[in-house]
Design a protein around this nucleic acid. Structure first.
Lengths: 252, 252
DNA sequence: CGGGAGCTTGATGGACCTCAATCCCTGTGG
DNA sequence: CCACAGGGATTGAGGTCCATCAAGCTCCCG
């Protein structure tokens, strides 16, 4: 999957066969491309939400800040993912999004989204599927932080990233590029930077994985999976056989 | 909201005005009432998913088990919540559901759900909203475990439960009934039972909250909120103004 | 050459876990 | 009525995991 071309359509296409009007609508939805520089916020927590985005290229993260200065990173969206959908659905965004590299997003106004739900309800169902997958990953993240040791957490994180990037063709053999620094990994895993460093070193000396110069190499995936009690988050096609009523197929 | 009567309709009704056919469909969806005894599993992790449930009454929890015997509780559904939706959407369930008290559920076959998406796509959108709210709570849970101290976590948990139960009328003043034991709270917050006990004691001696005999009393909500850096998960009406095309209003 | 961002390492302390009792309450059977 | 068992709550002692503090290090860039 090339990140620049129709990531969203491709993801949704795995779920529902799109009608021509739907495809056109999605195309039109993604015309206003917007560049966000590394370090800038895309959506701010609490922002009154009349807008969401689709990540088209680059790395981003969603996170929440605590009053004491702590930060918890929730997830790392990949190209094709929706950003800030809840800032439309739930009035205000409950967390922030930040660009980790220079990124390209497309903007979705609330009105457009409403139009989509109204005229192309099947796209709404497709988005339900997308968010369900995200939620499944969130659950894994929760389990990691709640019940895994720091070492297992770190291994799990590297493995999950590997699988997600492999799905979109961003790995090469057992390697992938990862622009995250140890602060960000710490805020993801609920660890201090320093401890992340030690865990990475331990993975390195055990010849399980290496993280150097923004490059991750997994030397022994089986051993890593055993260490992290890792199971693949299965992105199976799911409901390919959703039926469509005539009305909505014609509609729009 | 009485737990026995149309919890789901009520929740969805806050989001979309339901048409008569939609209302009837939801009614029919919830006819096969099923009793599950305390301690029994409702959905098992990995179960090939051709069925989901709606919780009608009682307490349940969703959780994941780790190979080392550890358990992470994900959430506590309240009446009207969907259980195991992802076991339909994503082929297999990624976690288990268990009844904490005797509960009543209604069964939804995958085929019925597909029919719903096909014939009543607006209901699909409504469910997207429901799951978005769940996800927002999941995020709060993640932040709690990742970045809050054990004491703050415990306080946060008691507060969140309070707000959720208040929404469905299950509180009385600053009190509510909570059938959870300290093991379950520990597995929710990523703490040991013993430490949960100490944290509860500390809340008690600080005159912030008491948890005794399945009864929770919040003595000083403001102080608790400050301690936990708590913000209400805002279940605002959201998109009350979704427009409907004629086709789908008539449809079904 | 200097400065800064990020990585690495050591030392110390604290938060939380584990192990091990004891206690309380409730239900059960004699 | 009492003995007993079992689930849950409570408390103490000791150890471990991980955070915090404090330096140095490396690399890149001006």
């Amino acid at each position: 999957m090339r990140p620049e071309e129709n990531c969203l359509q491709r993801k949704i296409g795995a779920f529902v066969r799109l009608s021509e009007p739907e495809r056109l609508f999605l195309d039109k939805l993604q015309t206003s491309r917007l560049r966000v520089e590394r370090g800038q916020e895309i959506v701010h927590e609490g922002q009154a939400g009349q807008v969401a985005y689709i990540l088209q290229a680059g790395w981003a993260c969603s996170f929440k800040l605590l009053p004491d200065g702590g930060r918890q990173i929730i997830a790392f969206p990949v190209p094709g993912d929706l950003i800030g959908l809840r800032s439309i659905l739930l009035r205000t965004s409950d967390h922030s999004f930040s660009a980790l590299t220079d990124v390209i997003v497309t903007r979705i106004e609330a009105a457009e989204l409403r139009k989509m739900f109204a005229e192309f309800p099947y796209l709404g169902t497709a988005i339900l599927w997308l968010t369900s997958r995200d939620e499944a990953m969130l659950v894994e993240h929760l389990v990691s932080i709640g019940r895994r040791s720091a070492l297992a957490r770190t291994a799990h994180f590297l493995l999950e990233l590997y699988d997600r990037l492999r799905l979109v063709g961003l790995t090469k053999g057992n390697e992938y590029e990862c622009p995250l620094n140890q602060y960000q990994i710490g805020d993801t895993l609920g660890l201090s930077t320093i401890h992340v460093n030690r865990m990475l070193r331990q993975l390195r000396t055990r010849k399980l994985a290496t993280f150097r110069n923004r490059q991750v190499v997994l030397h022994d995936i089986d051993a890593l999976q055993a260490l992290a009690s890792y199971t693949i988050v299965d992105g199976e096609p799911l409901l390919p056989e959703i039926e469509r009523s005539q009305a909505t197929l014609a509609g729009g």
